[in-house]
């Protein structure tokens, strides 16, 4: 595990590589979220200072895009696809089952920090609908009864 200081140093290097260019803000936020796991205010302030822009602009961008988050995520991120193809093949039932098992709602993290549950719009694997991703692994052609078994592997 890297210390906070190391993480900021790495972020700093990345920003330097981008020549402190404010038009690279989104790439920088992607990098920062990769390093810290989320984008707390002090990270946003750090980026704003480095790019010589107002922190309000950084905050505006962070809150505009659904990919960025200001709350830490759990160890395993569950993404349920709610694209149209998955929706008509029963993705809502999968979501309900996961919510029931983990006792959290969409967008929340379990109290032990093990799982975060989110939804997204189309991973482009419509042939496998309905689809659920956990971290980088994709589970396709799911039925509600499959959920218990999959979650128990984590």
């Amino acid at each position: 595990m890297k210390s906070n200081k190391e993480l900021f140093a790495e972020l700093d290097t990345f920003i330097e590589e981008k020549h402190n260019d404010p038009s690279e803000l989104i790439a920088i936020l992607h990098k920062a979220q990769g390093l810290f796991g989320y984008l707390p205010m002090n990270v946003q302030q750090f980026i704003a200072d480095k790019l010589k822009i107002n922190v309000s602009r950084v905050y505006g961008v962070v809150t505009f895009y659904s990919f960025f988050t200001m709350v830490p995520k759990g160890d395993n991120v569950i993404n349920i696809c709610l694209g149209t193809a998955c929706f008509v093949r029963g993705a809502n039932d999968l979501l309900a089952r996961v919510e029931e098992i983990l006792k959290i709602k969409n967008g929340e993290t379990t109290p032990d920090g093990k799982f975060t549950l989110t939804t997204l719009r189309c991973v482009g694997a419509c042939g496998l609908a309905p689809v659920m991703q956990i971290n980088d692994k994709t589970y396709g052609n799911l039925k509600v009864d499959d959920i218990d078994g999959i979650l128990s592997q984590y």
């Binding site: 694209g83 929706f87 189309c122 482009g124 694997a125």
Partner: peptide, 12 residues
Amino acid sequence: DEGDPGAFMDRS
């Protein structure tokens, strides 16, 4: 930025 849910030709 293929955002339409259910379209994946650009990705392919």
